[in-house]
Amino acid sequence: MRLRRTAGRIAFGLLVLGIVFYAVFPFYWAIVTSLKAGSALFTVEAWPFHPSLDNYRAIFSQQPFGRNILNSLGVSLSVVALSLGLAVAAAYALGRVAFRGRTLLLLVVLGVSMFPQVAVLSGLFELVRWLGLYNRMGSLVLSYMIFTLPFTVWVLTTFMRELPKELEEAAMVDGASPFVIVTRVFLPLMGPALAATGLLAFIAAWNEFLFALTFTLTDEARTVPVAIALMSGASQYELPWGQIMAASVVVTVPLIALVLVFQRRIVSGLTAGAVKG
């Protein structure tokens, strides 16, 4: 009996190790590759014996990668601010006020989150050109609303609905307008929900590829994912794998740090948005 239990425990330990290895190894391999320079790149070694930062230097000198990072940061932060602003207002109306068509509106919003991006590409292209935003960051901030707004509205509505009615009633008795109620009463209580949805919106905007690929043209206007996908070296046939891996590590480390610090928040945000069985 004891033998069986020990065997079970060992098997379980191996399973845990297997999961960790599977999840972490590709990223480890990217780090190892990014530290290899020259011909070391083409040998399969699990450890960089002669670590070099050449690849990291190259992405900032030979490629406009610094600029790409600033683009991505600018776009993602604008997307977070804009979608949270719009979603808080909408969530107040959807979560606290009873009016006809509320359920239908929520379902429409949910429906938008299921749109394939390619289905709005031609219409958005037209809109972006008409607004004079082609090859500018504004085109991305605007178009990213299609996937950040639905889930920020959805999650914040769920959150708003749970807040006690008494808070609002007390403010209303004092004659506070809806605007004051939202900004002074509800907003201070929404810190955790705003952090969770804001983080998810940031990650979604930071990772987006299709719109960024389509609405930007020049190397300098690209965001990080497009830059990494299209990174090319001296010759057309030889991809600069070391530099691609260095760029991948540079943009992923902050994301992983964010996820590790805020993992509880992220998990609660993800599940609040998705699981309501």
Binding site: W29, P225, I228, A229, S248, T252, L255, I256, V259, Q263
Partner: peptide, 27 residues
Amino acid sequence: RAAVLIPWAIPTVVSAQMWGWMFHDLY
């Protein structure tokens, strides 16, 4: 849980490139 979250946090383009390199035919 943090380790499991890592693949989710990595941008799709980056994971495609990382695996593209791991699946490279020569190296």
